[in-house]
Design a protein around this nucleic acid. Sequence first.
DNA 1: AACGGGTGCAACCGCGAATCC
DNA 2: GGGATTCGCGGTTGCACCCGT
Length: 326
Amino acid sequence: MGRIPCCEKDNVKRGQWTPEEDNKLASYIAQHGTRNWRLIPKNAGLQRCGKSCRLRWTNYLRPDLKHGQFSDAEEHIIVKFHSVLGNRWSLIAAQLPGRTDNDVKNYWNTKLKKKLSGMGIDPVTHKPFSHLMAEITTTLNPPQVSHLAEAALGCFKDEMLHLLTKKRVDLNQINFSSPNPNHNNPNNFNQTVDNEAGKMKLDGLENGNGIMKLWDMGNGFSYGSSSSSFGNDERNEGSASPAVAAWRGHGGIRTSVAETAAAEEEERRKLKGEVMDQEEIGSEGGRGDGTMMMRKHHDQHQQHAFSVDDNDLWDLQADDLINHMV
DNA sequence: AACGGGTGCAACCGCGAATCC
DNA sequence: GGGATTCGCGGTTGCACCCGT
């Protein structure tokens, strides 16, 4: 039983690629293209499995790849799209010409995740940790809250300390009584997390036009200055997936391979234009697909949703963000 | 200088989706 | 229509390099 291996492991070389192997693969693909990955290593005279060849080509050898540091603009795009798409690295990478999903994934895991945590933002939900704590207190019974808070404080100790030392969020001003009307009624404390999640889901889906609902923590926290936020303003409540589903339901992300490469390139070009040249976008005609929706959605908020210049938090030095311990 | 821990990145693995036959 | 094959994706691992002690 078990899965059939993609290739005979015995005769296959693994590990780092040598320059000679790179040359063989690149020159073969230049001549014959990437039609059948299983045959490519055989025909190119490589003792590699097709999967390994495909990975090497797509992540490293492709001539259109961009190597080197990610720019600030690219960082912003990654965080912005991650807040909407979650860990859909290939989709995020598609917004960054010359970057691969592996690049984006690695960059997220090694740099951006820590950077966001250092800013007191949960990299999974893109919400401030303080907001998550407030959510916990509104959805769980008091005994559960105390246990969970204890555990969470252990997990988020650094982030909480950061918040305290940097005074990004004044804990005295956090409204732990929350907007949830049930909170003040002990009889309603049994509302489960599932119920809350279900409500969030509905909020996201029923928000009209499939646009993600703005979460509002009520204490004025934002990724950046008061007039700007680092992520998308219309943030999904909880996990990104319901909103993404809603978005897709309105013709959102293209995933079908039937979509032509030209269409994808067009989309990429437009999205690139959106980010690189925001001023010029407003006059552009509409599109029926989700990309346009995202673009429209973005257009409506670009003045404050994605401004690099006025984002003081983002410009903090990494040391300032993470090494908060005195 | 040696060592150990942290970091970044390339590569691998396993699964589901898409395509082929 | 359905099984086999191939592809693409996201998560994980391994290793080289860096830096502090």
